[in-house]
Computed example of a mutant assay.
Amino acid sequence: MKLLNLIFKLIDLYSWVLVIYAMLSWIPPLRDSKVGEIISKISVPYLNLFKGLPLQFGGFDFTVVVGIAALQLIERFIYIIYNLLF
Rank of each mutant, 00 (worst) to 15 (best):
M1Y: 11
M1A: 15
M1N: 13
K2N: 13
L3D: 09
L3N: 10
L4V: 04
L4I: 13
L4G: 00
N5K: 08
L6M: 10
L6H: 07
I7F: 12
K9C: 01
K9V: 08
K9W: 13
L10F: 06
L10Q: 10
L10Y: 13
I11V: 15
D12E: 15
D12S: 14
S15E: 13
S15C: 09
W16C: 10
W16V: 13
V17E: 04
L18T: 14
V19N: 04
V19Q: 03
I20T: 10
I20N: 01
Y21I: 07
A22S: 15
A22R: 09
M23E: 09
M23D: 05
S25E: 11
W26N: 02
I27K: 05
I27T: 14
I27F: 15
I27H: 08
I27W: 12
P28E: 00
P28H: 09
P29W: 14
P29K: 09
L30H: 07
R31S: 13
R31N: 12
D32G: 03
D32P: 02
D32A: 11
S33C: 02
S33Y: 01
S33T: 00
S33N: 06
S33Q: 11
K34M: 13
K34W: 07
G36C: 08
G36L: 08
E37G: 15
I38L: 15
I38A: 06
I38E: 04
I38S: 03
S40C: 12
S40E: 14
K41D: 14
K41T: 08
I42A: 14
I42S: 08
S43N: 00
P45G: 04
Y46Q: 03
L47I: 09
L47P: 08
L47A: 02
L49E: 13
L49N: 14
L49S: 04
F50C: 08
F50R: 07
F50Y: 05
K51F: 02
K51W: 06
G52N: 10
L53I: 14
L53D: 09
L53P: 12
P54T: 03
P54R: 06
Q56N: 06
F57T: 04
F57K: 01
G59E: 01
G59Q: 01
G59I: 05
F60V: 15
F60I: 14
F60M: 12
F60Y: 14
F62P: 03
T63N: 05
V64M: 14
V65D: 00
V65G: 03
V65P: 01
V65R: 00
V65M: 08
G67V: 12
G67F: 04
I68V: 13
I68L: 02
A70L: 07
L71K: 06
L71M: 12
Q72M: 05
Q72R: 13
Q72T: 14
E75R: 12
E75I: 05
E75V: 00
R76K: 10
R76T: 03
F77I: 14
F77G: 12
I78G: 00
I78A: 06
Y79S: 07
Y79K: 04
Y79M: 12
I80Q: 03
I81P: 00
Y82V: 12
N83R: 05
N83I: 03
L84P: 04
L85N: 03
L85E: 02
F86K: 06
F86Q: 00
